[in-house]
């Protein structure tokens, strides 16, 4: 009995802390569906009287939010697929091929991953202007494919380094060449790790800010993050519009979170341990 009494305060404290973490989301939700009149009369903490969706609709049309969503999906999706493919190729050479100097190659990818984007951003901006890729979604796709693949190579190499040798040996005896071993055996067996990489690359690219901010200046090419960040930076939004922007920015993240929750938490564990 005494232990039960002692247990509940811990649970209650943790629930309160968790509530504090999600309260900003709830505040955004209740205010995004309030009319400007209601907001100015009752302030941000009152519950909405009705469902006012014009603010969301106005904001959607004003910033052409559908286009921004499409750009974000296009860029993040392409980067996830391409970076995962590149990671697999790199890791195959390092983890299974055990090429000479692999420690150094791996160290290079680790350092490349740690490098601050500030040290790359101006030359990338300058070079992309030279080759006519400035302000294109392709430029951002290329850059993030390489940056994300640096992490993927690091993670996948250590996973493939422990790949059961007998399976590879058996396939080789059956006459499979290196491509066939990679495509028919290594990729299917490592599908869980590749899945984690796909999810992470997608969300990381979705959330990227600095490079897309510099590279994508025209409205038609901007991602959700950049468009919302720039709008906020201009300080031109009233309260209703800010809440509409916040809600529309939060929703995709919550969808990803619910869809990928298990992969995310499993993946962080894998990534941290090696």
């Amino acid at each position: 009995m005494t232990t039960a009494l002692r247990r509940y305060p811990v649970l209650i404290a943790l629930c309160l802390a968790a509530l504090f973490m999600v309260v900003p989301f709830l505040i955004v939700l209740i205010n995004a569906v309030k009319s400007p009149a209601e907001y100015s009369e009752h302030g941000p903490l009152s519950l909405p009287k009705g469902l006012y969706l014009d603010g969301l609709k106005d904001f959607w049309q004003r910033v052409d939010y559908g286009q921004k969503l499409f750009n974000s999906v296009l860029i993040s999706g392409s980067v996830a697929a391409l970076a995962a493919a590149l990671s697999v190729l790199n890791a195959y050479a390092i983890g299974i091929g055990r090429i000479r100097g692999r420690t150094w190659v791996l160290a290079f990818f680790v350092l490349a991953n740690m490098l601050p984007q500030e040290a790359l951003v101006y030359p990338i901006y300058y070079l992309s202007k030279q080759v006519g890729l400035y302000d294109t979604r392709l430029s951002v796709i290329i850059v993030f494919t390489v940056i994300q693949a640096a992490f993927g190579t690091y993670l996948l190499s250590s996973v493939l380094g422990q790949f059961p040798r007998e399976i590879l040996e058996a396939a080789r005896i059956d006459g499979a060449n290196k491509w066939q071993v990679l495509w028919r055996i290594v990729v299917p067996v490592s599908r869980p790790t590749i899945g984690v990489l796909l999810v992470f690359f997608f969300i990381w690219t979705w959330n990227e800010f600095l490079l897309p901010l510099v590279m994508l200046i025209s409205n038609d090419n901007q991602t959700v993050s950049v468009a919302l960040g720039v709008l906020q930076g201009q300080r031109l939004m009233d309260a209703t519009m800010t809440n509409a922007a916040a809600l529309l920015g939060v929703l995709p993240a919550i969808v990803f979170f619910l869809v990928f929750q298990r992969t995310l938490t499993r993946g962080i564990a894998v990534g941290a341990v090696k």
């Binding site: 900003p24 989301f25 955004v28 969300i203 979705w206 959330n207 800010f209 959700v224 993050s225 950049v226 919302l228 960040g229 906020q232 800010t242 922007a245 916040a246 920015g249 939060v250 993240a253 919550i254 990803f256 979170f257 995310l264």
Partner: peptide
């Protein structure tokens, strides 16, 4: 999982 730009708007 929230884009930092969105977290910034919220806060």
């Amino acid at each position: 999982v929230l884009p930092i730009a969105v977290a910034g708007i919220v806060w």
